[in-house]
Simulated assay, not measured.
Amino acid sequence: MTLALRAMTRLAVWPDLAETRPSCGTGRALGAARSEILHFHSDHDVDLHLTGRAIRRYADHLKNATAVRMVPGSRWVTIHLEVDSDIDLLLTLVSVALQAHLDGQLTGDDLLPTACNDR
């Protein structure tokens, strides 16, 4: 079983997530009530929709994480899954994303639809 499939299996049972069609048309996606949260694009790459606030708050940590790829100006970050601890990082960041998406913390640009990083 690939790391992406293991992560998808673990996240699919979270009560606030449901499988949905990815807006980019590639891979599989999980979303919350109001927006897409994750796109699984390959056996190793997952795009995660964070808010601008979360990206700014955790920018130093995200930039220093070897598994994280950031695209300037994007509210999506790409997690490259190579080892089990990358799944743990992904689960932590999904929790941060869900909290923002479900607690009404979306403001301004966070409410506008954006393309994931798989372009």
Rank of each mutant, 00 (worst) to 15 (best):
M1F: 07
M1W: 03
A4N: 09
L5N: 14
R6Q: 15
A7N: 05
R10Y: 09
R10M: 11
A12K: 13
A12N: 09
V13G: 04
W14D: 15
D16K: 15
E19Q: 14
T20L: 09
T20G: 08
R21K: 15
R21N: 06
P22S: 07
P22H: 04
S23C: 09
G25V: 09
L30G: 08
L30F: 10
E36P: 05
I37G: 00
L38H: 00
H39E: 13
H39P: 04
H41I: 06
H41E: 06
D43Y: 02
H44F: 07
H44M: 08
D45P: 00
D45L: 10
D45E: 15
D45V: 07
V46I: 12
D47I: 04
H49Y: 01
H49Q: 13
H49W: 05
T51I: 03
T51Q: 06
A54W: 02
I55Q: 02
R56E: 15
R57T: 13
R57M: 10
R57A: 09
Y58R: 09
A59F: 11
A59C: 03
D60V: 08
D60Y: 07
H61F: 05
L62H: 00
L62W: 01
K63H: 11
K63G: 00
N64C: 02
N64V: 00
T66N: 11
T66Q: 09
A67H: 01
R69W: 10
M70T: 04
M70R: 08
V71Y: 01
V71N: 03
G73S: 05
R75S: 06
R75M: 08
R75T: 00
R75C: 08
R75W: 00
W76R: 04
V77P: 01
I79P: 01
H80Y: 04
H80R: 15
V83C: 12
I87N: 07
L89V: 11
L90S: 10
T92V: 04
L93S: 05
L93T: 02
V94L: 11
V94F: 02
V94D: 08
A97R: 07
A97S: 11
L98F: 00
H101T: 03
L102N: 13
D103A: 12
D103P: 03
G104M: 03
T107I: 15
T107K: 14
G108F: 06
G108A: 12
D110K: 02
L112H: 04
P113E: 03
A115Q: 11
A115I: 05
A115R: 13
C116Q: 07
C116K: 05
N117H: 01
